[in-house]
Design a binder for these strands. Structure first.
Lengths: 225, 225
DNA sequence: TTATTAATGATAGTATTACTATCATTAATA
DNA sequence: TATTAATGATAGTAATACTATCATTAATAA
C-alpha cells in the first residue's frame, strides 16, 4: 500500500504553490536541509538557490521572503502533527490516555514520514524546536495572524485544550496548559541538548524523561478535585 | 536616600564597557527604546547611531554586533530580576510564600526602576518577552554558553529550582519546572497580547490571571505526596 | 606645562543581503 | 500551431553588517 499525504496550505503563505512543481518541491526539501544545518539566521535565498541549482529570482517566485518560507514550514509541521495526533488517538476512548498519547507525540523525536516525499519530518521537527518561536516572535505577528498564518498552531492548541477540558471540565486553564505543553515539549528538548542545566535531563539526554515531566505537570494540574 | 544600582556584567559581552561612558549609557538607553519600538529584526546599529547622534563605527566600539548587544540586555535583565527576587523574598521564611512571590515577580509588568538611570526596566521587560528567546535560539548557543553569556538566566533558574526543592524535596523536576515557569511567565504574556486564543486570558488581558495559572501549575505539581 | 593616552567624530569602503526587473528559452496545454 | 506557464540568465539597487583610517577633543601622567 503506497499512500501520499498532501496537506492543504494557506495560499497566502506563498506566491506559487511549491507542492505543485518540481522546483517548488526542491525549495521545500533543500530549505529544510539548509535551515536545519546552518540555522534560520544565516539562511538566505541565494544560498538556497545555489544548493538547488537555480537562481535567487526563482525562489522569490515561490516565497515573498524567507520569513514566509519559515511560516510555511512551521504551519506545515503543525498541520502534519495534528494529523498524526488524530491518527494515533483514533479509537481511544479514554481522554486521559488520548492526552498521554498527545504528549508523547509532541515530545518524541520524529521519524521521516515516507508519505511525504519532499518533507523530511525529522529535520523539520528539529527546525520547529529551534526556530519555531521566531515565526510569531515578530513585530508583525498581528498582521500575520490576520492572514491566518498561525491557524494550524492555534488549531492544534484548541484540540489539546478541548482534550484537557474533556479530562477535567472544571480545570480553569485548558488553553494555557495546552500552549504550555506544546512549547515546553520543544523548549525542554532544546534546553536538554544545548543548555542542560536548565533541565533535569542533562545527564543522559533521554527524551522519555521530558515526557515524564510533561505527564507529571499536566496530570497534577488536571487531576485535582 | 538616593541609591545607585550597578550590575556586574560579563566582560566578554562587550568591547568597551557601556556603563562607564556617556556614549555607552546612551547606547543602552536608546537601543532599549529602539528594539522595544521596532523589534530586534529591523534594529540596526546605523539606526541606533542616528538616534543617538553618533556614528555606526562608534557603536561597534562597544558591541561586536547586535546579537551581543541583545545578549547584554537580556543578561542584564535576568541579573536585575534575580536581585529583585532576593530583595523581595528577603525575610520570608516559608519557601511556598517565597515561591509565590517569585512567580509574581516573573509575571508582573515591571515599573521603571529609578535606581538604574540608563535602563528602562519596563521596556526591557517587554523586550525580554518578545526577543529574549532569540538570545539562545541560535546555532552558536553552545559557543555563547561557553562564554557564560547565559549565566544570569541559568543562575536565576537554579535559584528557583532550589526553592522548588525546598518546598518539596521529593519533586523530581525542579529545574525543568523552574525553566517552565520562567518561559511561560513570558510566553503566556506574549500570547495573551498577540495570539489570545492560545490562552485563557484573552478577554480581559489581565496578568493576574497568568499568575493564577502559574501558581496553579506549580503548586499542583509540587504539593502532591 | 607638555606629552600621552583614551574616547569620539568624520569619512570611506567592502562584501553580503534582500530584494526587483527584464528578456530569452523551454515545456505543457489549448 | 499558438498560447501560456514556468524557468533560466543576467543585471541592478538599496540596505545591512561590518572594517579601516585619520583628525579632534578631553582626561591624565610625566
Amino acid at each position: 500500500m503506497e499512500l501520499q499525504l498532501q496537506i492543504k496550505m494557506n495560499e497566502a503563505l506563498f506566491l506559487r504553490n511549491p507542492e505543485q512543481t518540481e522546483l517548488g518541491k526542491k525549495i521545500l526539501m533543500h530549505s529544510i536541509q539548509l535551515i536545519y544545518k546552518n540555522g534560520f539566521e544565516t539562511f538566505t535565498f541565494k544560498k538556497l538557490a545555489k544548493d538547488i541549482g537555480t537562481t535567487e529570482a526563482g525562489i522569490y517566485r515561490y516565497f515573498e521572503n524567507k520569513h514566509r518560507l519559515l511560516l510555511y514550514l512551521v504551519a506545515w509541521y503543525w498541520s502534519w502533527l495534528e494529523y498524526q495526533i488524530s491518527f494515533h488517538t483514533n479509537n481511544i476512548n479514554d481522554p486521559l490516555i488520548r492526552l498521554k498519547m498527545v504528549i508523547k507525540l509532541l515530545a518524541t523525536t520524529v521519524k521521516d514520514d515516507e508519505k511525504t516525499s519532499y518533507v523530511n519530518e525529522s529535520l523539520l521537527h528539529q527546525i520547529v524546536i529551534s526556530e519555531g518561536s521566531k515565526a510569531y516572535l515578530t513585530k508583525h505577528v498581528s498582521e500575520d495572524n490576520r492572514h491566518h498564518f498561525f491557524k494550524p498552531y492555534k488549531d492544534l492548541c484548541a484540540v489539546i485544550g478541548d482534550l484537557i477540558s474533556e479530562c477535567n471540565p472544571k480545570y480553569k486553564y485548558p488553553k494555557s496548559l495546552a500552549s504550555t505543553i506544546i512549547e515546553m515539549a520543544h523548549f525542554q528538548n532544546f534546553f536538554m541538548n544545548n543548555l542542560p542545566s536548565l533541565t533535569d535531563f542533562g545527564i543522559n539526554k533521554d527524551e522519555a524523561k521530558i515526557i515524564s515531566f510533561l505527564d507529571d505537570l499536566v496530570f497534577s494540574s488536571i487531576n485535582k478535585i
